[in-house]
Design a protein around this nucleic acid. Structure first.
Lengths: 214, 214, 214, 214
DNA sequence: TATGAATGAGTATTCATTCAT
DNA sequence: AATGAATGAATACTCATTCAT
């Protein structure tokens, strides 16, 4: 209904996210310490000084990159889980699909590698990330697992550890892509990777052929 | 019977590995760029200058850390695979056990995280690591998978991608431990983690309940 | 009429020459290796970092010192030579006068000593200096000599070598001043030195009393 | 008459001069600051530590290089001057010949360039050199000049300054050879250079065509 | 004597941060 | 708000010097 704001103002309001996008790219590519703020500014199309108008210092920029990168995907997924009717395995599939579309295919996919690389240098950010991303994600998977075990769809196993085993290939997909994956010869197909992961899980979690388990 | 070599010489021979151990620790903890060579030297119990007697510069030290960290585990595992009789799944288990004992429980366990974090800054080292470690590891798993598919023990699926899915939780175990894992509340039990991973695989890979697959 | 440029910009434009002047002074006084960039910066009234805004590194600064030190005196002298009418000896005198006023009495007088001291460490700069300064200076003297020999004003001798013999005391005057000359007791009078040199040449080059020559 | 001393001892006694020769070469080539003692030791065929058995530190080595480089040429030349009968110009020629044979053609020829380059950093060495080499050389030339002026062979001029003008091309010959001379195209012939210098002096100093002089 | 491993003070260089414009 | 010139703390690297062998 209203006319779009003048370009000048639009750009001003867009600055923070342009800076965050540039910073995320470079932090992921080079690591925190090896990223020069001058390069971040240049990639965002502003001068070095301007960056400091929006972020107090390099560390604040880093924290913002992580914190702003936590988009409402988790909330969406929590809603999906709450509203789900159907098998627990189908729920796992839905959650993965949404995650793949909203995170895995966007620039945010670089955050896990960044977080892995810098956790040791930013304990508080790691803590924050763990509590607000990892833990919520783990809870989602955990709920689906418990639901499936109760219903008899999944065989029983230690839930906390199984969560980690299930999540690992998903995280690894992204971490790989932004690190060693650049140097492997065979072109990986992420969607096939996720499909095979789910196939293994479908059969691996199911109760039908259960034997003595941990 | 013969007199021990003079102290000076004994130390000189021990220096490189002492320095590499210290460097590995710090590189893993802080990342390459944030690690000060003076700290590496201090941790190895020598002065800054001494470090330069053994490694030409920081980059050379980094490369040595990676290259020297490639121990004969892979050769051992290749021998294990060659001599194995029994099911293919048992072979996977043997390989994992040996890897866990010779790598997973030692200081070398930090290398994957380090390599993930620095691959972008050291493409040639990443290439080297990929060819000499990742690829040989992948080949071992691939051989076991193919053997199992041929014998009818495993159901068919794209081997290359399945290798990645199988390896991911194993790599992730180490990467996790040296990064975000430090900040999670629940104490992880790596041996249980590996056991559950193998349980998922046993059932997930087996042909018995096969359905339509990729 | 127009407002003066803002202070920042004025200073920025003046920086390079201020830095070059300071660098020349210190390089001449202490030599290249013994000159600390921090001292250069301090003498120019800026900080260490500022120096690097204008020159990429110490070697680039050194090269700039030499290359910027090649003032248009040579061009002036080439013009003087081209327009000269009168005896060849008078031409030599004019050239020397101009050189003395434009080089010998300025800070640039330190360059020959610097170049002598550092030629071995900077072959490409020495080559540059040889081609752009020495050679053009030699050509000027050579032209005057040949003109004089043709006209019968000077006796014949090997021109190339005679050039060197004529130039040597002139270069030495400056080299001396910035090196051992500081430590001699008797106060040298450079103008008298040049006068005596010219007197020797007037009589020494002239044909009148020629004997058997080389 | 006596047998030569055993090789071992001969080498030990030769050490200091081998070290001085190596040091002189490198100091002349690279300058004092840029010369590494390790390279001096290597060129002399000993270890770094051994150098310190003979010279307390780098500065002491430098001073020894200069002081030991002052060979008895001056004493010889003083004797030549004292015993000379014949024209004053002939005396100048004899002195130059002896200097050329005993200094100009040996490794010691590098000392003037070295002294020029480092005078500013070693005032006391420069002072020493000035007093023990330059001044004695100047006195020799000065005596010959005064003798010639008194006898009427030379025209009158300020002796101190004329000494400098006469000596300059001789010093410059050596300085040139070890600096920019390496980069000039035309091959210089030092003996022709000295001959032309003497020819200029013979005619330039002589009284026959005297005019009004300074 | 002779060695060369070890040391650490010293310097070139980088880059996060400030601030006058 | 935006700029980019200026700063100086931080760190890689060198090399004179020491000293255990």
């Amino acid at each position: 209904m209203s006319a779009p704001p003048p370009l000048r103002k639009r750009r001003k309001e867009a600055r923070p996210s342009e800076l965050l996008a540039a910073a995320l790219d470079l932090f992921v590519e080079k690591g925190y310490a090896a990223t020069r703020l001058e390069d971040v500014a240049k990639q965002a199309g502003v001068s070095k000084g301007t960056l400091y108008l929006y972020y107090a210092n390099k560390e604040a920029l880093f924290k913002a990159v992580i914190q702003e990168g936590i988009v409402p995907v988790l909330a969406e997924n929590e809603l999906i889980a709450a509203q789900h009717t159907g098998s627990s395995f189908e729920l796992l599939g839905k959650l993965l699909d949404n995650w793949w579309n909203k995170i895995g295919q966007t620039r945010l996919a670089g955050i896990p590698k960044l977080m892995v690389a810098e956790a040791g240098n930013f304990p508080d950010v790691a803590q924050f990330y763990y509590e607000n991303v990892i833990n919520r994600g783990r809870a989602l998977v955990g709920t689906a697992l418990e639901r499936g075990m109760v219903s008899g769809e999944f065989r029983r196993s230690d839930v906390e550890t199984t969560i980690d085993v299930i999540i690992a290939p998903i995280l690894m997909l992204l971490i790989w892509r932004y690190s060693i994956g650049c140097f492997q010869e065979h072109e990986g197909d992420p969607e096939q990777y996720l499909r095979i992961h789910m196939n293994l899980l479908r059969q691996g979690l199911s109760k039908s052929t259960e034997e003595s388990q941990v």
